[in-house]
Design a protein around this nucleic acid. Structure first.
Lengths: 228, 228
DNA sequence: ATATTGAATTTTGCATGCAAAATACATAAT
DNA sequence: ATTATGTATTTTGCATGCAAAATTCAATAT
């Protein structure tokens, strides 16, 4: 069966993709008001499909609608980042479980190739490259394991990509030489089709990131208290 | 701080609530096409806010938008019901965990009152009443534990209410006298603020429902195979 | 009877217009 | 100088209009 869903692409969907990109790439900044008339003109469309796109983004929490006042790019606090990571923990845990169930042999080959370029280095210096690989890895696993609802939740809420943006260096919460072992363990579990381990390891992996985020909040709070 | 979010209520939001209700209460049936012009007239509004409402419902998966063809009430297969339950498993598990962390003493009192009316009966005959209590219980727990994203996912996707609609008798997957023990165990864990147990028990609770659903699918498949 | 073609009708996607609300701005009052 | 008040401007929410696409339905062909 062929997917014909995207056969026609309406203006509002195009606008949606463009806006999403503008937000993620920081062309529209958090807190900023979205100028409907101007943006519609820039995109060469009317306000109708633009507003339609904004409504989609509102559901995805990328944008906040305030009645009679307009749409604003959403702003996330560190506390909210933690709740996003908590969601990733359980959702990607589920995705890892399902991936272990579903994965095909050809996909195992691909999975095993992740982090190959970082095999030899004890100290990984290419942080940026590692961060990219990290993202690709998580997307690959969820791509195999998450369908339908789980997939749309992970996609819609932009949990993955967003999570990476607001934290520490290059979007990594913890240093590569610590997380690479965990990544390898997850790869092994999924390749062995060990669903329970895959879920557990993925959850532990993300739980540790959450712990770091909580620490950061705590130390910030103390610094602020001292300064004040 | 007072919540002023719902101060103004736009037409599209009103339409959204009405439509959601119409779908849940089966005034609009799964698979049915939504007649925009007629419905707009019935509601006394134009197509603009109606379509806007439909876009919200599309994101919630209650409605499917087919470009140039219109909106259709979504139809869920039993397989999809399973993936919804899998989501409930991890999301309500997280909610139970958070509830155990957050719950206030006054809320513990309330929590302990759930299923009180079924205490004495070894065989619960009021299935409908039990089903209602079941729903209220799950909503209460998620109400305490889920905020922000988790809350909106659970709400938006209507996972809870929807889950109950399409399965077995009165929306219950398993008989009351089996599940009531599990409910009580969850209540105890949350009241004891034992987050790990609360999460684990909630997950086991839902896992068992999933197992039944899988069995039902399997036996259906065999029946169909025989008939065909 | 069933399938095919083609016009008539309906529906969708989008732009536009407009009243009401919100905002910005200028002037007056303290 | 700051606050208050009134006015002009902009923006929002919604209805409406219209072209293009989809659907219906009748007439014709198989």
């Amino acid at each position: 069966m062929v997917n014909l869903g995207a056969e026609h692409e309406n203006l509002d969907h195009k606008a949606y993709l463009i806006l999403k990109n503008m937000i993620i790439s920081r062309k529209l900044l958090p807190g900023e008001k979205i100028p409907q008339e101007k943006l519609a003109q820039d995109l060469g469309i009317s306000r109708t499909p633009l507003v339609s796109a904004l409504k989609y983004l509102e559901k995805e929490k990328l944008v906040e609608a305030i009645p009679r006042r307009g749409f604003y790019v959403r702003l996330f606090s560190k506390e909210e980042m933690i709740s996003i990571f908590e969601l990733r923990e359980v959702l990607e845990g589920l995705a890892a479980r399902r991936a272990a169930f579903n994965i095909r042999d050809s996909q195992i080959q691909k999975l095993r190739r992740f982090f190959k370029q970082f095999r030899k280095s004890t100290d990984i210096t290419d942080i940026k490259g590692y961060a990219t690989e990290d993202r690709r890895f998580h997307n690959f696993v969820t791509g195999i394991g998450a369908k339908e609802f789980l997939k749309s939740i992970l996609e819609n809420y932009n949990i993955i990509s967003y999570s990476y943006q607001l934290v520490s260096l290059e979007g990594l919460v913890r240093p590569p030489n610590v997380t690479i072992r965990e990544h390898r363990a997850i790869i092994d579990a999924i390749s062995d089709r060990d669903a329970d381990s895959a879920e557990d390891l993925m959850r532990q992996h993300l739980k540790r990131a959450i712990a770091i985020l909580r620490q950061e909040i705590e130390s910030e709070r103390q610094t602020t208290a001292k300064t004040a």
